[in-house]
Design a protein around this nucleic acid. Structure first.
Length: 629
DNA sequence: TACATACAC
DNA sequence: GATGGTGTATGTA
């Protein structure tokens, strides 16, 4: 069972850097001439600093593989023991398998490219990509046929496809479209989780439940401006239908059926969607197309990991539902290439492939071995994947943990130039931090030299910083240290970046918010999205979502009161946190970090509504937690 | 905490 | 001529 296929798996061509080869596991990349494309990529890259660095990284990975294969000499004894442990864990995980949720992953098709094509008809029948000569963000399906894809530099793409049109990015435009589709998402799951501008996870479970008892009119989508709409949605729908003729969406892929052409065939003035999840998702995609003239693909599955894979299955402009049965899931996962799973990238793929693992079923077969070769978190993740398990609920949006800005430029070696750039970065970063009212204690400087070698240097202060000068004071010091380190050689840089992390303000507010939100929702049952709460979604104006009906009036008042208390407590908290001000101690705080004026206001527990004598926030939070339990 | 790596988009 | 920017997680020291 073990120690059989030793190593010989990756077909190694001499001097071939597999890290740089075409990634053809994305949609629209089937059946093209890989070898020819890779040859062009390699020829164009060969000899560049970038290439040399990639070669180095490749060798590092190869070394890791060697070390791993040495460890593979494992006694039967050990393996048996590991196998037993794996089996125990499998049983445990099986126990917890949840097939009751309908998780949806939506993904706009060739998003940036599609937006540009929509707004510039000239582009519709041309291979095009969005980005620059240095880097492409995405490409349309016509360009993909030439091997042109996201994360490829434009000058290489041009070699692959000389007629390629490269359009610069218009982030503001993409953001605007993103907001439009997110409005639609909210109607199906107000707690949806955005992944990026064009991608999101939604929990459709509750929507589908409600949908069963809806009148047909609520499931009717008009796409002719002429018809009058009925019901509470009329305004919205009329607006969405306003763009009129449905055949304006850019044709992304010649062979792909477009829902627009379907509607033309039907020749009807409206369409009624059914009550199933699939119909609901179809409806959502239809509304997206009506509103933005862009198409989306979607995957429906019992958990996030599977939904993500499913959304890729019928891309572009398609959807796929994986039935919520153990059998269907296991069959689906069996032949699934590990690389398709989110979280498994180039390196993991290569490591696994060295062990003879390329599909998820292999993953399951070799789990005992994997448990001995990989870290606990890694093999636990592999195990879950091999069983088709993933998160069946969509986690609440997390607070951000860091904020950074970085820039690439032509070689820069002069100290003064580097310093002024560093200062500029600090200013930009301080600006961004200000927008979110953040202060952090850790400043990290990132440097990349002309050989593409990356270094980070960090310093954690005893107090939080936020202004450009505060950050710069630290960053320039880190830069100086690094310069001294390399001297007398100058730092020949091609990139510099500054990051601030270890935030304090949110750190204090967060646990409290969580507790209160948890309390407010505790009456609504335990499952999935109902547990999540984003204040923004509690606003009442959405027709489809139930948010305005969730709270009985009395309850709303209580909620308002508690939120008030929460705010008060939070501001108290921030004051208490002033002990962390920077050195020239401000006159407003004394050494203990207490507010000198008026003493410390008593904290009130939002649950039991009793004043807490202790004004220590930690104690207070523990009290709230006790109350919640 | 510091740093490097892997990963996603 | 030319290979990005932003953010998270994790392993290790």
């Amino acid at each position: 069972l073990f120690r059989m296929e030793n190593g010989s798996l990756p077909p190694k061509t001499e001097g071939f850097v597999s890290r740089m080869a075409l990634n053809d596991n994305k949609a629209g990349m089937e059946g093209l001439d890989r070898d020819k494309i890779n040859k062009i990529i390699m020829e164009t890259s060969k000899g560049s600093k970038f290439y040399e660095n990639e070669l180095k990284r490749e060798q590092q990975v190869n070394q890791r593989i060697e070390m791993m294969l040495q460890k593979e000499q494992i006694t039967e004894q050990q393996l048996k023991k590991a196998q037993a442990q794996v089996e125990r864990m499998v049983a445990e995980l099986e126990e917890s398998r949840d097939l009751t949720r309908a998780i949806v992953h939506v993904d706009m098709d060739a998003f940036y490219a599609a937006v540009e094509m929509r707004d510039c008809p000239e582009l519709k029948d041309k291979p095009m990509a969005v980005g620059s000569m240095s880097m492409l963000s995405t490409s349309n399906y016509l360009a993909r046929k030439y091997g042109v894809r996201a994360a490829m530099p434009g000058f290489i793409a041009k070699k692959l496809c000389p007629h390629l049109v490269i359009v610069p990015t218009n982030f503001d435009k993409y953001r605007a479209v993103s907001n439009e589709i997110r409005e639609i998402f909210t109607d199906y799951d107000p707690g949806f989780m955005p992944v990026s501008l064009d991608e999101a996870y939604l929990d459709f479970t509750e929507h589908v439940e409600k949908r069963q008892s809806w009148p047909e009119s609520l499931r009717t989508r008009r796409y002719r401006a002429s018809t009058t709409t009925t019901g509470e949605e009329s305004g919205k729908l009329a607006q969405e239908a306003a763009p009129g003729t449905p055949d304006l969406s850019p044709v992304l892929f010649e062979d792909s059926p477009s829902s627009s052409s379907n509607s033309e065939d039907a020749g009807d003035a409206f369409e009624i969607f059914g009550t199933s999840v699939e119909e609901a998702v179809r409806e959502m995609r239809f509304r997206i197309e009506q509103k933005t003239m862009l198409t989306a693909s979607a995957g429906i599955a019992p958990n996030m990991m599977l939904a993500k894979v499913c959304s890729d299955k019928n891309k572009p402009n398609g959807q796929y539902r994986l039935p919520p049965t153990r059998e269907a899931v296991m069959e689906f996962v069996c032949d699934l290439p590990v690389r398709k799973v989110s979280g498994v990238g180039k390196v993991s793929e290569k490591l696994l492939s060295a062990l003879g693992i390329s599909s998820c079923s292999h993953l399951g077969q070799k789990m005992a071995l994997l448990s001995l070769l990989f870290s606990e978190t890694s093999w636990h993740h592999f195990l879950q994947v091999s069983l088709g398990l993933g998160s069946a609920f969509i986690p609440r949006h997390e607070e951000r943990k860091s904020m950074s800005t970085e820039r690439t430029f032509k070689e820069m070696s002069a100290v003064e130039e580097q310093l002024s750039l560093c200062h500029e970065l600090c200013e930009d970063l301080a600006n961004d931090l200000k927008k979110e009212g953040l202060k952090g204690k850790t400043v990290t400087l990132k440097l990349k030299n002309v050989n593409f070698e990356v270094k980070t240097r960090a310093l954690t202060l005893p107090y939080p910083v936020a202004t450009a000068d505060e950050i710069f004071t630290v960053a320039k010091d880190l830069l100086k240290t690094e310069r001294d380190n390399e001297s007398p050689q100058p730092l020949r840089l091609r990139l510099m970046g500054v990051r601030v992390s270890a935030f304090v303000s949110s750190d204090h507010k967060k646990p409290l918010q969580r507790s209160i939100v948890g309390f407010l929702n505790s009456g609504r049952g335990e499952s999935g999205s109902s547990q999540r709460a984003k204040q923004q979604h509690l606003k009442e104006n959405s027709q489809l979502s139930s948010s305005s009906q969730i709270w009985p009036l009395g309850c709303q008042r209580a909620r308002a009161k508690r939120l008030q208390l929460q705010a008060a407590a939070a501001s108290t908290t921030q004051q208490a946190g002033l002990g962390t001000s920077p050195p020239p101690v401000s006159g407003k705080t004394d050494a203990s970090g207490r507010c000198p004026d008026g003493g410390s206001p008593a904290l009130v527990c939002p649950i039991c509504l009793l004043s807490q004598d202790d004004d220590d926030l930690g104690m207070f939070n523990r009290h709230v937690d006790l109350c919640l339990n």
